[in-house]
Amino acid sequence: MLLRVISTLPQLNGMKNETLIYALIAVACVVLLTIVAASLINYEGGEDRSYVKRRIAAVSIVVVISAAFFVYFDLVAKNAILNPGFQSMYTSTCIGCVALVFLGSIVVNVILMFLFRHSKYGSILFKMKK
């Protein structure tokens, strides 16, 4: 779909909308992968620092997915647009979507971590049960 040739303004607007939808899907993927990674990292005895490993995993997933999103949509998908003017219009949308993926993932993760604070996923924030 994104690799078809874009030559008209309506086609460009359609591509922008699709990119936004893919950004939302990417946010969901980041959250899901963070939950899975957190579950797979075992608790440790003694001084339990497994939450540090989960944090590293969470941050890495956000960064990697955001970077991958940017690489694909800005470097690969954009080649389908023939008009340079249209390309620069798409680039600003793309940057906005990457920011949505990055910041949106962080915000959604933090909200869910508060809601599930007693779980391994919630321990990424290292909030203790009272």
Binding site: E44, G45, G46, E47, D48, Y51, S123, M128, K129, K130
Partner: peptide, 17 residues
Amino acid sequence: EDDFISGLQDKKQGIGG
């Protein structure tokens, strides 16, 4: 090595109370 009890008392297990 998996000293859970000391970890409870000094919060190193991430469980409060």
